[in-house]
Design a protein around this nucleic acid. Sequence first.
DNA 1: AAATGTGGCAACCGCCTGCTA
DNA 2: TTAGCAGGCGGTTGCCACATT
Length: 328
Amino acid sequence: MGRTPSSDKTGLKKGPWTPEEDQKLIQYIQLHGPGNWRNLPKNAGLQRCGKSCRLRWTNYLRPDIRRGRFSFEEEETIIQLHSVLGNKWSAIAARLPGRTDNEIKNYWNTHIRKRLLRMGIDPVTHSPRLDFLDLSSLFNSTQLNLSSLLGLQALVNPEIFKLANSLLLSNTHENQELLLQNQNSQGPELLLQKLQLLQNQSSISQHNDQLHHQVSEIPNCTPQNVSSSSSQSMQGNMGHYMMNNDQMFQKNVMLPLQNYSYSATDVSENSTIQSLNNNNNNNINNNQNFSFDTPLSSTEEEKESYCSNFNNFMKFEIPESLDFDDLL
DNA sequence: AAATGTGGCAACCGCCTGCTA
DNA sequence: TTAGCAGGCGGTTGCCACATT
């Protein structure tokens, strides 16, 4: 792992740390404490730059580091915080004891981000986007039958569903081809236009004002997903969810979150499945149990579990008491 | 069995910020 | 005021391990 061991022109070693180096660093810090990273390598007998020592300590050797898989609660926290803070990994890490910003960043990029993309959610704005949704898995699915269509109906705005459904029912190969060809590029223009029109007719929540107000008071904080006062938000039974700005209406298709379900087939091989089952039963809406049939599917039980728990997974309710100063 | 592709993640790079003289 | 420095931070790289072809 890491990089090829090498030395820079000052003779300092780079690349992966050896157990001996780790030991030296640990022993030195145990004796003298962290800090003064510039002089630390020399005093500790390490051929490393101070920066490298600091990173090694903070990201790997620190005794309070909690290694291992992220729990579902941790994932949920990361997503919630990311929806407010954006890529402020250190701020997010501060709310997750034992986790480092580097670890969270890696986990986001390798797991959560991809999952959100597959779910059709923009990982930057946390807004649903049809052009990110993996529709090919839908149309290629052998499970594209009435029941899955009913699931799809729960996935999207009913009007959007009607439109998509009419495309399917017309049963023209061209339509499906068109949809599939365009889903990863610019999207079917006609469909997008119609969807956008429909979307713009969706109910607009007033409930973002409070959060916007709270966040706007944070110094130097420009939350990526908190709308401007002129932008729109949607609220469903999953809490407040902010739309980024009007540009979302230009190219992207937004779906009401209360109807947004989860392609849970590859959820969190690292997550604690059990934890999913602990706290969500009250929020389960059977209509939201929908899964795409993808090659990544695990067991049906897991799929069901994840699907039914997606409501919790995507519950981005920002507590009114959230102290943003503390957060930052 | 070998080649190729992909995921995961430790570590590096370069920029930014805050402190101090 | 400003230059220099240390530390912090987010983005990126590149290697290893495993999966797929």
